[in-house]
Amino acid sequence: MATGRIEIDFERCKACELCVPVCPRKCMEMGKTINRQGYMAAVFARPEDCVGCAICAETCPDACIRVWR
């Protein structure tokens, strides 16, 4: 049961993949669609597991993740 929710700014993501291994619930994945910058942006693949810990948002160098709890 999800207790948190995140929103990724699709156009700002540069697909550095730093947010993928840091998520303790493995909610993040690299996406398959290319954004306007030319990167395959990360996606919030498993929203049902998210606890809103905000570790992904703290890690993101481009500050493109917002977290709600």
């Binding site: 540069k14 550095c16 730093l18 809103g52 905000a54 500050a63 917002r66 977290v67 709600w68 709890r69």
Partner: peptide, 26 residues
């Protein structure tokens, strides 16, 4: 999901950073 826990700090302007992917400057 009503409480915003984390967002871009106010001092950091809402612009795209020009750094390479994964660069720690951001």
């Amino acid at each position: 999901f009503s409480k915003l826990v984390y967002e871009r700090p106010k001092t950091l302007l809402d612009r795209r950073l020009h750094y390479c992917p994964g660069c720690h400057h951001g």
